[in-house]
Design a binder for these strands. Sequence first.
DNA 1: TATTTTTTGCAAATGATTCGCATTTTTATT
DNA 2: AATAAAAATGCGAATCATTTGCAAAAAATA
Lengths: 144, 144
Amino acid sequence: MIRIFIDYLLPIFYFKCMTKNREKLLMILNANKVPMNASLIYEDTKDSFDLATIYRGLNYLETNNYVSSFVFDCKESGVQRYFTIKEESHKHYMHCEKCHTFTAIPLCPLKNALSDIEEEYGFIVDEHYLTLRGICRHCAETTL
Amino acid sequence: MIRIFIDYLLPIFYFKCMTKNREKLLMILNANKVPMNASLIYEDTKDSFDLATIYRGLNYLETNNYVSSFVFDCKESGVQRYFTIKEESHKHYMHCEKCHTFTAIPLCPLKNALSDIEEEYGFIVDEHYLTLRGICRHCAETTL
DNA sequence: TATTTTTTGCAAATGATTCGCATTTTTATT
DNA sequence: AATAAAAATGCGAATCATTTGCAAAAAATA
């Protein structure tokens, strides 16, 4: 049953609801592999789409679970929402204060800690946001 | 030398640079014990100060290390910056999706993990932001 | 092919935060 | 204490990321 859904129905559904805009958003996010905000994506599309359309597309993709997002306050470009392709396992990122890029931390360092917290505080945790801020390897090596 | 600074100079400096506005901001944040955003504080001051003055005061307090802040996207009130009194040890918070309040998690569950990450990725971590989202104990107990 | 639904572009609206500027308050100088 | 200089405030306007209304264009359905 679930196989049928994944193999057969899901692709059709996907095909049906993917407009050129949304298709392109997924392409860009897949190609770049790092969290991107709306204006970054807008530049990348080379004006193929209006910024409002890009926002609408990103929101559609998020509510339909193709992408996920988080807000981040970059010292260079301010508070903005960043989008990434949604994968099996969620990812966190570290943000470099020098070059202002994100680097993925594939494995979540909170795996075990979360259930401890749930138990200790009687809190049901649905999501968690973790972002590191610092100096990335590249900037640490090149700058003295 | 450092003792002289802490015992003598710091209080004078504190006294000198604390305006009524900034004094009140610290009072409110101390009294409430939870992260508060500017408009929440504004309501709490009962119109004693202009909202712009409150923002200026909060920014002053943050750059002078009296308070720290983070941006959070509350599903009820949107993306806003929240401020807390800066303490010896930093705190993280969990945010309830039902009652939209924050609960502190006094001990940071990342203590050890961070140095591992630094080593593995060659990244120098200056700060980290962690927020949990879910259902708080109170809402979990009262709602069926 | 006609009709309904969805998506898009454009311009205007929104909402949190910041800024300019004139006024008031505080601090430093005589 | 009186005055000059510096900092803080209130108000309104500006900013910037994001959203929204609306009419036109494109896609889906009958």
